[in-house]
Design a protein around this nucleic acid. Structure first.
Lengths: 165, 165
DNA sequence: TTTGAAATAAATGCTAG
DNA sequence: CTAGCATTTATTTCAAA
């Protein structure tokens, strides 16, 4: 699955005009909007719109288009943030654990952070018991993990993002 | 923009068969996959596939399909998690602040959590200065905010999700 | 880069099993 | 719930400006 920023970003910050930004905002809101509808909203010909969208995808500004699911309906109604702290910070240990955390069943996002913690692991599970087992079997099982702290997530909301006008 | 779980989930956990799960996995990976390609991958007729997808959307299992952007290419290469703690936890204060945090420019996600913190605010900004200003002008400016703690995000990766086989 | 119009491809509606 | 086929709609291509 695709990753978010930061990670490796384009060397060229890309020159985006108002048309591009309008297209991006529309596709962030509805990634399945038809090209015809997009063109109408943006005010360019369909062929132009399709060209722009392709350029935005090929240049990597649009990284991917994905469906988002109701995880509760899929039997994973409980969300938590597991804050992970390491005992050893060798590059190898950090990299290995990172890979393992990404592969945890139910892992939604893994953030590698600086500060008090090393990783923030956002998971969705079926029950509190499953959360406990997940932590024991997939997180604290690794010797380089010194400590974890788990916070229950009551709710998640999307922010306004970077495309505000 | 749409929100993730938890929040309000369907009362009926929905009965999803293997076909549905395959469709969901495919659309999470590529939300713009054509119905024809989906049908081929799943092994059903196109009309059947379209019917299933529509049912999944209407039942709310698929909440939305959105484009994801390279925020670095958009001039917001710096990510941070701002941990927010309140002094007052009245429902009104919590609700008000939540709304404000969601509306912060550059806010990607806001998590309402239990435990040490009250909110985790994931933001993308153009520079360290902008991060400082954002916190001062949009977070600590609110009287109910007692304390914040900011962690720089080195990298974000998607986890394997809940649809592992 | 942008465009319109033709050619290709895909989605939808309808019918029936 | 599924499938096949006809209709409608969308995307791609391309020559031209």
């Amino acid at each position: 699955m695709a990753s978010q920023q930061p990670k490796k970003t384009q060397p060229t910050p890309a020159t985006l005009d108002g048309t591009d930004l309008t297209i991006l905002a529309a596709l962030v809101e509805d990634g399945r909007m038809t090209n015809a509808a997009l063109a109408a909203r943006v005010g360019v010909a369909e062929s132009t719109c399709a060209y722009r969208v392709r350029a935005l995808r090929e240049s990597g500004v649009i990284t991917s288009i994905n469906a988002r699911l109701d995880l509760g309906a899929l039997g994973h109604p409980i969300h938590a943030i597991i804050r992970v702290r390491l005992g050893s910070h060798s590059r190898e240990h950090v990299g290995t654990l990172y890979d393992r955390l990404v592969d945890v069943p139910g892992a939604l996002t893994v953030l590698h952070v600086g500060g008090i913690d090393d990783f923030l692991l956002h998971v969705a599970v079926a029950s509190p018991e499953e959360l406990r087992d997940l932590i024991l079997e997939h997180v604290t099982v690794h010797p380089m993990v010194r400590q974890t702290e788990t916070q229950l997530v009551f709710e998640v909301r999307d922010g306004r993002g970077v495309l505000d006008r």
